[in-house]
Design a protein around this nucleic acid. Sequence first.
DNA 1: AAATAAACGAGACGGTACGTCCTGTCTTTGG
DNA 2: CCAAAGACAGGACGTACCGTCTCGTTTATTT
Lengths: 213, 213, 213, 213
Amino acid sequence: MAEMAARGRPRSETARRAVLDAALRLCQRDGYQALTIKGIAEAAGVGRQTVYRWWPTKEAVLLEALRDLVHRQGARLAPDTGDTLGDIRTLLDTTFRLARELTGHALVGLMAEAQHDPGLSARLQGTVVGPRRAALHDVLVRGVERGELSDDEVSLGLAVDFVFGTMWYRLISHHAPVDDDLAQQLTHALSRLLRPAGATADGLAAPGRKRRL
Amino acid sequence: MAEMAARGRPRSETARRAVLDAALRLCQRDGYQALTIKGIAEAAGVGRQTVYRWWPTKEAVLLEALRDLVHRQGARLAPDTGDTLGDIRTLLDTTFRLARELTGHALVGLMAEAQHDPGLSARLQGTVVGPRRAALHDVLVRGVERGELSDDEVSLGLAVDFVFGTMWYRLISHHAPVDDDLAQQLTHALSRLLRPAGATADGLAAPGRKRRL
Amino acid sequence: MAEMAARGRPRSETARRAVLDAALRLCQRDGYQALTIKGIAEAAGVGRQTVYRWWPTKEAVLLEALRDLVHRQGARLAPDTGDTLGDIRTLLDTTFRLARELTGHALVGLMAEAQHDPGLSARLQGTVVGPRRAALHDVLVRGVERGELSDDEVSLGLAVDFVFGTMWYRLISHHAPVDDDLAQQLTHALSRLLRPAGATADGLAAPGRKRRL
Amino acid sequence: MAEMAARGRPRSETARRAVLDAALRLCQRDGYQALTIKGIAEAAGVGRQTVYRWWPTKEAVLLEALRDLVHRQGARLAPDTGDTLGDIRTLLDTTFRLARELTGHALVGLMAEAQHDPGLSARLQGTVVGPRRAALHDVLVRGVERGELSDDEVSLGLAVDFVFGTMWYRLISHHAPVDDDLAQQLTHALSRLLRPAGATADGLAAPGRKRRL
DNA sequence: AAATAAACGAGACGGTACGTCCTGTCTTTGG
DNA sequence: CCAAAGACAGGACGTACCGTCTCGTTTATTT
């Protein structure tokens, strides 16, 4: 396992961080469409060639910036405390907080771009979106295995789409926030959707219920 | 009520249609980002100024093209047959078919653009997205009034987000189709989410049920 | 000799004059290059097509405007009073005054344009410039016939070029005015250039001389 | 005396020359009006921005092209051989040859443009036209100092205008060539115009003299 | 310490789309 | 049938950014 002998000046971590930070900042400020490599380089105080040397497109810059951001958060994806609904809540809270900070502009712009760029789509799903989906799916599977949930009536895939679809939809159309309240409502809705046949309706508390005997 | 006297050469409906058609076609073929006004004008066989004369941006062109498409479909939005779940199915089938044809690229691109353009966002919601949302909401309200559905546990707003969120999410990430099967699953899931407290589980058939003890 | 029967609405003299006036005014104000047919039509309060119907190019408009201006001045071209130098002075005074009023911009611009438009060049020479040249030449010829001048040493053609060349040169480069003083100096210079061999130097008055008995 | 450190890619002399050459060539071929920056860039095989980066207008391109041409010719402006008339002939021959090659179109077009652009006018006079004028004036002044010429009757300024006016006039109206013959005639005419009072007519040979008593 | 080599900033290069303006033609209403 | 109004296809304008290419400089490793 011979290492490639390092020759010449090593890559500047300072420049790399400056580029990623500038990309996220500009995308958040001016929107995805208005983001240009020239603009990123200038905002980062970096030569344009330095960007092109390491990233082929502005999408690649943004994607790496997002991946870095996610990694730095180092969020625990799939906690397993034995309490399925509690795990769901935890996961949703973490995910929603990340989504709010994650510069919706960047994510939505990348998603739009990924419409006709399968490679980008795959990387986006693989590094940013996919792990969250998989984590939720895992929690639900464990719930089914424990008998707390059932996929007899509604498939787990649809349940996962329910959660992330609603999140995305609100991120995009802004008609309602993606906050802790949404996490609570979604958790409750999931419990109804996936409730096993024999479970009583009272086994779980409805969010808005005022106490109903 | 004197009409403004018509002076000068009247606007060419031919050119208008050519522009709108070319815009949708190019957006579908090359994606939203690659769409340019120059490209639209050339594909439509139209002078560039003719586009700028009537539409300020490519977003405006796409928006009008979508609106035209929706209007031409003239889809019945909120059928009221007395059968709430049947009405939901009808509405979903119509909406999904439209979404599939509607050049997801255009819609998603516009959505991305609308992130930092409140005016576009409003027009997009008002003309293309909003009516569908409102129609579904109306159907659900009627269901609640008839006692077929209940919003005690899950708010109707969240239920609507569930449907459209899932649709959007699949349109964007392509991990599953937006087809009649999805309409069926969503209808069934809605019936579970909004089932009144006293209703028996058997009142409604589960779509993909494999076994039922 | 049957006249062509006049049919339909007759041409509007008002519009014609408005166009010609606007053309001269705009050319004087903004220069020849900045002159556009659209601008002329709008300044004249006239439809664009009305200009194109009667004149093929902006050059044609300007040329007709100049021709009109010259005709309206109705300047006597070649007075024959018997006093050759006096006739020259008269002719130069008239010509210079016309040139000053004639919107040098228009004339110079047309000349520049005529560089690669032989037809325009011919019409320009024929209607505006040529008659003046011919008139001066006639006066000089009469002077030679009377023995007051001689073309032995300097050809009359060169003498004419001397006068008009100097005028044009000053109109173009603005380094000195084209005024009565120039007319006087040129007249005196001509008398020297074309003085017959036997004439005394005193036969003609030098320009700056104040009365010399 | 520290030089400004050279940074970035240096300007391409190849591109500069290609632009200047293309500009002169196109102006000569199609005329000044038809000259466009787009056309220059394409003919030079150069990006349009490369032209705009270094020259603000097509006038500036032409002016620099002319200046380069003049410099490359490196013409001796004011020879001083002691023979005034000989010096004049030499200067005129050089100037006329340059003018013929110098793409009259470019010069006349620039002159026309300079009508309403004082800055251009000044630069045009300063770099291309002025030095020739000054050179001729110097020669004439030396002639006066030597007693070979006199400015008693005709001012030297008018004499200079005579020469350059005639040249310009012929360049513009094309009614006669600007060749060696013109140089000879003008030299002779100058000798008459500026002949000192006491000089005999025979001191200088008339060029086209037919008979001499 | 000197040589080598790659990354760095800067910025010019050939291109392309932008949004504006004008061209010359056309198509309408109205005198 | 002319005039005004103005939409039409087309094309040049001057600007911005693209992605590539030199430059001189800096910062490492390898002699």
